[in-house]
């Protein structure tokens, strides 16, 4: 079936301006690194936040990601789109953290961030609205957190980072059809868990 998606991956790879910036970083141009950081800081932190669901940890991991990018500058080769390489580092960093913390109190981090609104004694309508919104967000977070790591990464990249199947496949080192299957199953699970909120 004809996909005809808007972005042509191959064409964008050939003229990837971020890869050009990274090649300048390789030559010692620190200003280019600042430009890359400025451009991708938010998306990397937000991706990591939705993966680990803790603000402080997501920022700590994002620092690790940018440090790795900087340390790898001397060996960098523009063989793939820069964002693919960047998100591959970010995904591995998140997977490693999730693996290390799997046996620990992962639920606690959810409660830490989502629970603050529940203790507000004020019963004004605005506060109640906020509490309802917090409960909704908390449910979404729990539903996403319950997905297997790879499905979660695929959903976050597809839904929130608006990445194409081919790029998600490159980040996760799997085929495009595997990504489509991952997404289909993940969205199916989320639809079932969150249908009462729609």
């Amino acid at each position: 079936m004809d996909r005809r998606v808007k972005e042509d991956m191959g064409a964008s790879m050939a003229l990837d301006p971020d890869a050009e910036l990274m090649l300048r970083v390789k030559e010692g141009d620190e200003a280019s690194f600042a430009l890359l950081l400025d451009k991708h800081r938010s998306s990397v932190i937000h991706f990591l936040y939705r993966m680990v669901q803790n603000r402080a940890i997501s920022e700590e991991l994002a620092q690790e990601v940018f440090l790795r990018v900087y340390r790898s500058r001397e060996t960098y080769e523009a063989t793939a789109k820069f964002t693919t390489w960047l998100f591959r580092i970010a995904t591995h960093t998140a997977f490693n953290w999730l693996r290390d913390r799997k046996s620990e109190r992962s639920q606690e981090s959810l409660d830490e961030e989502g629970g603050h609104a529940r203790h507000v004694p004020d019963r004004s309508p605005l506060v109640e609205q906020r509490m309802v919104a917090d409960v909704r967000v908390d449910e979404i977070r729990r539903a996403v957190a319950a997905l297997p790591d790879k499905q979660r990464a695929a959903v976050v990249m597809h839904k929130y980072e608006e990445m194409e199947y081919a790029q998600i496949a490159a980040v996760l080192s799997c085929s495009e059809s595997a990504v489509k299957s991952l997404l289909f199953r993940a969205y199916e699970t989320l639809r079932a868990r969150l249908s009462h909120m729609a």
Binding site: L37, S42, R191, A198
Partner: peptide, 26 residues
């Protein structure tokens, strides 16, 4: 319909803003 409803729900999950001292630490 189910997918669009799901995405509408998921849109309410916004990531927090980045800390002001992120760049300084980095």
């Amino acid at each position: 319909a189910g997918q669009q409803a799901l995405w509408n729900v998921m849109n309410s999950w916004q990531a927090p803003p980045v800390s002001a001292d992120f760049d300084r630490h980095l």
